[in-house]
Amino acid sequence: MSQAPKDIDALIDLMARLPGLGPRSARRAVLHLIKKRGQLLSPLADAMTTVGATARECLNCGNIGTSDICDICASEKRSIGQICVVEDVADLWAMERAGVFKGRYHVLGGTLSALDDIGPDELRIPKLRDRVTTEGVTEVILALGATIDGQTTAHYIADELQGVQVTSLAQGVPVGGELDYLDDGTITAALNARKSV
């Protein structure tokens, strides 16, 4: 049982619900925040209040932003011909970190799953269909996981989107990877997707 005052205990309980934190690490984090009240606790509280009030899902692509239309959708520098379809916002951020894709995104909010009975209507697939017809899209890039559910979703979307080029990310040897350490599935996928040098 915690010896902290009630308010601090409540904060520890809330922190312990965050991914990567348990009760013990939450207690350490809260103690650290209290010790660094000026530099960390107050700015963190302010930032959380601001994000809590402004963060929302982009009505167009499903990205998280601070307005109804996110910065990426609103940017004129972004190509309108390409849409990259990702499973969730974390994947969008990963693509943005790489900094090579200059088009726009579409966040599905999950993948089709036969086992969990997640069908197309539970995802943002109808909205993607609308965007392809109304935004002058020429290519849809499917950046979905190399998993059974990810690829089932990719094939479903490819079947749904007629009259537009649908491509998907390659699968194979990662940069810096050595064959000896790769699993059989990755080696098979890499061999199937081999190209002329």
């Binding site: 190399a146 998993t147 059974i148 690829q151 094939h155 079947d159 699968q171 699993d183 059989d184 599935g185 990755t186 098979t188 996928a189 199937n192």
Partner: peptide, 10 residues
């Protein structure tokens, strides 16, 4: 694993 064999085959 059977995943790699099936992923490209609808």
């Amino acid at each position: 694993s059977r995943a790699a064999q099936v992923m490209s085959d609808r």
